[in-house]
Design a protein around this nucleic acid. Structure first.
Lengths: 345, 345
DNA sequence: TTTAGCAATCGAAGTTTGGGAGTGCTAAGA
DNA sequence: TCTTAGCACTCCCAAACTTCGATTGCTAAA
């Protein structure tokens, strides 16, 4: 298998094969190409070229006397020379309109972006939410649910709301809770995680009967704020995998579903992508995970406050519609960057 | 097809067939029953009885010279005579332990119950959340996200937190928002939906520059409280369907997935169940929806504050393990009732 | 270098066949 | 009257075989 640059004709033929294969999911013959593409050469010539493309590793035959299907290398050549990076004004416009309707609160925005991405691409979509550091304490609510249980609700200036249930060993005095809530709200208002960690040393000045409660709640508040700074993943359209024709056998699907449920693997996957360039495409065996070798990932990083903050992307079969998908993923990433930009003004 | 009561031997044989079929998912022969069940009769006798059971509509043959499989009527007889209603102490105990670890806030509790149910039964689980009427206003937070966008966070005494984004046509004065927040928190504290609707007439007494804002926010608060009183459905373990052996053909699965995505149909389904007796079992064609004719529903109502408030249940193939499933569903429903009871104390 | 022609290849789909699992029926035995 | 051994019959399933057509690679001529 020798690799080299392709002359124009070979490239055209390779593109023809891949385009047809993406459409039909069936091996493509020299005759099909001669008929459907105006290359002004006979099927015999195409046949010769196909044989060369195969020896170069761009195509393969499922069996002798069958048509050709692309290899991962073939797809790689295809996407590298697709030139689908420049936005399509129509799509840009319609996605832009969709984004206008979306929620302006970060968490909900991420969730909705993920849903949108899966709907538009018809693949499985994933969104790695941005690292929200420096969130500021806005308001704390403590709600007594029953005699030993308190619900803590923390709201930050970015509009993130965290709930947490606290169970105590002993009965809780309702008035203490009210007082603790008042004290902490006054004390921490508009402070970020670092500042609260420093400020909490002052708690020692408060009366003994509520000091423990103050400490405990503060620890929880710090925990919530720290939790908010962690990456979160949104996943949608998992069942879209099933509408692909290649999945006559359920086993492969179950393998992939397994991977999708391993949040940690996904997180690593998407975090790897954050450090790379804007558009990320991993085709079949280019993925590190062996369960992903029949799937491709098309993703894009997005920005928030001037520098890269997260990744969005989709997983589909290697035989995915790269042109359409790349365009859509890019467009959504751009819109997301824009909306996030307007939020942080 | 004549229906009548079954003598003991016929019932034993029917049970044997169904038990085996649940285990193996393959047609059961007279020989198999003679070998594996100590009925002290020959396979020929069993054969005669099987023929009678078939003529009565309890069994059918996929084709002549094959073993028997149960009909929906057969399953119906099976579950009606299973006597699996009384709790199994071991299971009771372990599920009880699982519930202790669950969250004590209604919304989260429902979500977790749904997950637990799907994990334990290995079917698709659904939970119809209780009607939470008479929730009381606990605290309102207004967070300015950008110049025209405000995040509204409403917390009720039950610990439900609702977020809503408000977009205004004109720029918002930060101080007004702070004032509105203060006024409404003082005004509505501990009021329920009805009381707030009456109380909001007093808003007219406030200065003109914030009156519109007050009105607008109040409308949203009322909307949030009303929303909270609506039924909600939690759905988990959708992909569990795929691990069933009967699903070599993907089409049926997609039909079912379609139904599961129609929240309205599900809602109707579960609300029907609320009005019936505690344990609800709908086998195959007993379901109104034709897409459900190959699936069974096993559900149970649960109580909250002394009267029936909602339904939990699972959907699986008609060939499901009824004994195990009924027991688990019942057990979880009982635990849920108990936890909800302790919350409303 | 291109291309028409053609033998060779091989899978997909259809057909045939044999085996085996299972049934229903019959007649003898309890 | 009920049970059961025996047996013919049915019919699916899997394997073996056949046919058909799509496609290729090769050859030789243009």
């Amino acid at each position: 298998m020798k690799k080299m640059n392709l002359d124009v004709r070979k490239a055209k033929i390779l593109f023809a094969v891949i385009n047809e294969y993406i459409l039909t999911a069936e091996p493509i013959s020299s005759k099909t190409i001669a008929e459907r593409y105006q290359l002004s050469i006979s099927s015999a010539t195409i046949r010769n070229e196909l044989a060369v493309l195969e020896s170069m590793g761009y195509l393969k035959q499922p069996h002798t006397s069958a048509g050709r299907i692309p290899t991962d290398l073939g797809y790689r050549f295809y996407v590298d020379n697709l030139g689908a990076d420049e936005p399509n004004p129509d799509e840009e416009n319609s996605i832009n309109n969709l984004f206008i309707a979306l929620n302006k609160e970060v968490e909900e925005l991420m969730r909705q972006t993920s849903v949108l991405l899966s709907r538009l691409t018809r693949y499985t979509a994933m969104v790695l939410a941005p690292l929200l550091d420096k969130s500021r304490f806005k308001h704390l609510d403590l709600v007594c649910l029953c005699s030993r249980t308190v619900l803590l609700v923390l709201i930050t200036d970015r509009g993130c709301v965290t709930k947490k249930i606290l169970e105590f060993n002993s009965e809780i005095v309702q008035d203490d809770i009210v007082e603790v809530e008042r004290i902490l709200n006054r004390m921490f208002y508009n402070f970020d995680l670092t500042e609260i960690k420093i400020k909490k040393k002052e708690l020692i000045n408060y009366p003994i009967h509520i000091r423990n409660l103050l400490k405990e709640i503060t620890i929880q508040v710090v925990g919530c704020l720290a939790e908010e700074e962690k990456e979160k993943i949104y996943l949608d359209g998992t069942t879209n995998i099933f509408s692909q024709p290649e999945f006559e056998n359920i086993e492969k699907i179950q393998n992939l579903l397994g991977v999708l449920e391993e949040r940690y693997v996904l997180l690593q996957f998407l975090k790897d992508a954050v450090d790379s360039k804007r558009l990320i495409i991993r085709i079949g065996s280019e993925n590190k995970q062996k369960e992903m070798k029949d799937y491709s990932f098309v993703g894009s990083t997005y920005e928030f406050g001037g520098y890269t903050k997260g990744t969005i992307g989709v997983i589909g079969p290697t035989r995915m519609d790269y042109a359409r998908t790349i365009s859509t993923v890019n467009c959504i990433a751009r819109n997301l960057s824009k909306v996030l930009g307007s939020l942080s003004e």
